[in-house]
């Protein structure tokens, strides 16, 4: 199956470019580790804000790493080739977003409970924290990919991208941290979790054609 070839290609590109893969994840780890040092090591102070901090840092980690999603393919001319390929660009965009999620979203979701522990987070929220990040990072990756594709040909693209993408991450942050809060306080997790899944499914369904159109526009203006 052709799309599998594109998926493997993108996966190889990330795994053979170690710094691009590890830098955002190290940033995630270090940024969380700095909060007890900068705010207070007191559990009582950190516990109520722990899951929110993990979610906010995860969001910024996604934002920084999304900037590189199409950059090297654009500068090497590979995007120009992709536009000419017979496989629809939207399908290739889905593959790239999926690879990005596997490389960043999944590790963030796995690391989150450990980092939550560093912030004295209630253990009852660990499962939901991982689950919401697993779902939320997929949705954020889809939306961020539009910004990345749209700004890849611009000289100050990362600044523009931040302005475009960050506001659109806010619903993921609200529903994601809301679900974790509900799990910790014993409230019903379903409403915020359902809303998070809903906006992620919506993002997954509407983003691929938008990413494809953005790539085409960037190539034509590049």
């Amino acid at each position: 199956m052709t799309i599998w070839h594109y998926f493997l290609r993108d996966l190889k590109l990330y795994f053979r470019n170690a710094s691009e893969l590890t830098t955002p994840l190290i940033f995630f780890l270090i940024a969380i580790a700095m909060f007890p040092l900068g705010v207070s090591p007191e559990s009582a102070l950190l516990r109520p804000i722990s899951f929110g901090l993990v979610w906010v840092v995860a969001l910024f980690c996604m934002q920084f790493s999304l900037d590189t999603l199409y950059r090297d393919d654009f500068s090497s001319g590979a995007l120009e080739q992709l536009v000419q390929h017979e496989v629809p660009l939207a399908v290739i965009a889905i593959s790239r977003t999926l690879v990005y999620w596997v490389c960043f979203g999944v590790p963030i979701a796995i690391m989150a409970p450990v980092l939550g522990l560093m912030l004295a987070m209630e253990s009852s929220g660990f499962g939901v924290l991982s689950l919401t990040l697993l779902v939320g990072t997929m949705g954020m990756a889809s939306i961020g990919a539009i910004g990345s594709a749209l700004t890849v040909s611009l000289k100050k693209g990362s600044v523009v991208m931040t302005l475009i993408v960050l506001p659109m991450f806010v619903p993921f942050l609200i529903f994601g941290s809301g679900a974790v809060n509900a799990a910790i306080t014993g409230a019903n997790v379903s409403p915020p979790l359902t809303a998070l899944v809903g906006i992620t499914v919506l993002a997954l369904s509407i983003c691929p054609p938008a990413i494809a159109a953005s790539i085409k526009m960037s190539v034509e203006n590049g």
């Binding site: 070839h5 190889k12 053979r16 001319g77």
Partner: peptide, 22 residues
Amino acid sequence: GHRAGIRDELTCIENLQFLTQY
């Protein structure tokens, strides 16, 4: 083009497979 999509992270054979659309 003269850039044409060759990525240094991929081997010659992998680059050629990409250029010829697998």
